[in-house]
Design a protein around this nucleic acid. Structure first.
Lengths: 149, 149
DNA sequence: TTATAAATGCAACATAATTACATTTAGATT
DNA sequence: AATCTAAATGTAATTATGTTGCATTTATAA
């Protein structure tokens, strides 16, 4: 996953009729190289040469196209992670567990834990589900065990 | 639920060692009278005489005390709903489904649908879970069916 | 009645996100 | 290769949400 070649991203942009720009390729590259979700502020801190608004727009268009999906962290900030489900134009199926670490603040997508079937009360028509958990991620629970910080 | 008397709220504040102020009683009264979650902007639009910051602080202290719990809506805005589980000081158990209507934006707590047991991957230590869904609530799905709006 | 910790009000600040419009550019067309 | 155009980006301003520090007021305990 950390070694995805650039031409793969170019194909991906082509597939969605998006122009292959440097900014978009860099955003894709960063997002695919991590196993945690990414926010606009995250991107901005790394890619300070790209305008804030451009980064917001890139995230939005990628979400519309079904390339990434949105999940809010404990602060209510929008974070995005690459879709591994078969998501498409305005149609997401990322019904897995999102784990937000209260220590390092990272949001992990635990794709292996997906939603159980639920019978909603009369009248409710759901078109998307998400599972959300918060607590300590492996790295931080290990740290907390050793040091008392 | 819509008819909870004021002295009940006074008892509730007493129980948590919070002073019985007008602002707090009004916030409690409003939140208990609705079956949907409430945000600071919601409160502010109704109680414009109370300072914004005071409303934020009331919501925060109620959450700390386990009187209400927080859930983010589709815009990432913090919404709060009364706890029906046995929540206490910094310890919530509101592990039920939160339904966000994409039309009217209301957040409903569907207490009857709670979290299934999950086996998290090695190392993840969760201390809270939430189920989240979005779609149309009963009112809005009925409207959409009749009118083509 | 009074003393005081708690609660509120107010001003300033911080951060996330959006909008409008000008400029640049990827990529198609010739 | 030169040119054209819709798409993408940059810039500035604005809005929304939330927080912090400090002065003032108030609920309530003594």
């Amino acid at each position: 996953m950390a070694q995805i070649k650039n031409f793969r991203f170019e194909e991906l942009l082509d597939k969605h009729h998006l122009k292959k720009t440097g900014a978009r390729l860099r955003v894709l590259s960063m997002m695919y190289s991590k196993n945690t979700a990414t926010s606009q502020p995250d991107l901005e801190s790394v890619m300070s040469d790209i305008d804030r608004v451009t980064l917001y727009r890139i995230l939005n268009v990628f979400e519309e196209k079904g390339i990434i999906h949105k999940v809010f962290d404990l602060n209510g900030t929008a974070n995005y992670a690459v879709c591994h489900a078969d998501c498409g134009e305005n149609h997401h199926h990322d019904e897995h567990l999102h784990f937000n670490c209260t220590n390092c603040k990272n949001v992990y997508c635990l794709d292996e834990l997906h939603m159980p079937r639920l019978n909603l009360p009369e009248g409710f028509k759901a078109d998307s589900f998400t599972l959300y958990a918060s607590g300590l991620c492996p790295k931080c629970s290990k740290k907390n065990a050793s040091s008392v910080n």
